[in-house]
């Protein structure tokens, strides 16, 4: 039986998604025997884009049936690699929230390039001030994009990192010839067993410096909803799935509020507006929340959600 070929690329990413692929574990090992073959995965297998000795002029990636891309698109190099992946792969999977919604790096969309460079190379307290390098650095794009803002994406597997359950599920579905594999369009609350009583009294918002009330010896289902405890849990506006097919949400299992790593509940949703609107309805004053945009769009700043202030900062 012919193996299905897979190409994998990482763009503006951290390699966490690739570790998630490896974390598929036994299933992956079994599949690699008969069904799958990674023809390209530079995180793990060395690859020279311009030929073994750099003799080629054009960037090249081998053809594959399935392409997996992690990371968003921030510079010309990411863009070039992405376009090549799209060209060479029949089915393109956006893996991880950076690829689906911009992820953490897309928070840069709130700032100008000048602000970025100034902070990163000069002002950051942990950096020795230096000039901004001009050579051997790909030019930046005007913002950090999600993959589907530049190319057509066939399948979305968000998460930071994505849970191996969904990667395995998607791969198995594809092997069965199903190309319409989709994440559930529910929020984290769907998988969250905490007790919900009343959302009133949210006027008193706590920061994570405080500890929620819970008994560590008791299961999650005996802890009061963290939002109801006054922590700004983003569960209600975040896609379900971080706990895998049937598990409880990961952060909440660790007794900390959801930070929104699976991105919006469904495409086109506006978590920023949704969340503030919902909280305002139960009496919370949105003005009390510092860095609203950064907090609420921490993982989903692409697609124009986070923008630089019109007319520049302070003006």
């Amino acid at each position: 039986m012919t193996k299905v070929t897979v190409a994998e690329e990482w763009l503006n990413a951290c390699a966490g998604c690739e570790i998630a692929i490896l974390n598929v574990g036994d299933v992956l090992v079994d599949l690699l025997v008969n069904n799958l073959e990674f023809v390209h995965i530079p995180v793990i297998l060395d690859k020279k884009y311009f030929g073994q000795t750099g003799e080629e002029k054009e960037l090249s990636i081998p053809e594959a049936v399935v392409g997996i891309v992690s990371g968003g698109v921030r510079n010309e190099e990411h863009k070039e690699v992405l376009l090549e992946m799209r060209k060479k792969c029949q089915i393109l999977i956006a893996l991880g929230t950076c690829a689906t919604d911009g992820g953490i790096p897309a928070m840069i969309n709130m700032y100008t390039d000048e602000e970025l460079k100034k902070f990163y190379y000069k002002d950051s307290p942990t950096t020795d001030p230096a000039d901004y390098p001009t050579e051997h650095i790909p030019p930046l794009l005007d913002q950090c994009y999600a993959v589907d803002q530049l190319v057509n994406v066939d399948l979305y597997l968000p998460g930071c990192p994505p849970h191996p359950d969904w990667i395995a599920g998607a791969v198995l579905a594809l092997l069965e010839g199903k190309t319409d594999y989709k994440m559930p369009e529910k929020s984290v609350c769907d998988s969250c067993p905490t007790i919900r009583e009343s959302k009133k009294g949210l006027a008193d918002i706590k920061r994570m410096l405080a500890s929620p009330l819970y008994d560590p010896d008791k299961p999650l289902s005996e802890m009061r909803c963290l939002l109801e405890q006054g922590f700004l849990c983003l569960g209600p506006v975040t896609g379900v799935g971080c706990g895998g097919q049937n598990g409880a949400p990961r952060c909440i299992s660790a007794r900390v509020p959801c930070r929104g790593c699976y991105g919006p509940v469904r495409k086109g949703a506006k978590p920023l507006v949704d969340y503030m609107g919902a909280l305002a309805s139960v009496g919370f004053d949105p003005n009390k929340m510092p860095d609203r945009r950064g907090y609420l769009a921490r993982f989903a700043g692409a697609h124009g959600v986070l923008k630089r202030p019109v007319g520049g900062r302070n003006g």
């Binding site: 369009e185 529910k186 929020s187 609350c189 769907d190 919900r196 009343s198 959302k199 009133k200 909803c225 939002l227 569960g235 209600p236 379900v240 509940v265 919902a278 909280l279 309805s281 139960v282």
Partner: peptide, 12 residues
């Protein structure tokens, strides 16, 4: 079918 019981609406 989108409801997943976050219960924010209950008090409103």
């Amino acid at each position: 079918e989108n409801c997943d019981g976050c219960a924010i609406c209950v008090d409103t």
